[in-house]
Amino acid sequence: MLRIPCPCCGPRDHDEFRYGGDASVPRPAPDDPDPEAWHAYVYRRQNPKGAHREYWQHVLGCRQWLVVERDTVSHRIGSVVMAREWQA
């Protein structure tokens, strides 16, 4: 069981959260007409071994979307910041 230190709510079990995927992939602008850009955003992922920044939403808590740094090997959680405040 992972525990994620939510910046609003403190450390909470991961079953209070919804996983939201890779946070390092930027979303194209709403009017971006390039299919390649959208294809990369929807489908292309790196699958790194080690540190991974990913979105989690604290759905059963403050409902904030967070950017969580998780090690894909050890599952250790590193930094956790609010997605609204995160600078890529």
Partner: peptide, 17 residues
């Protein structure tokens, strides 16, 4: 319902801040 709300929150918290 839950999926739609979460999607709106996601877009507002990330790409459309």
């Amino acid at each position: 319902a839950a999926e739609v709300l979460s999607r709106l929150e996601f877009l507002l918290d990330t790409a459309w801040r």
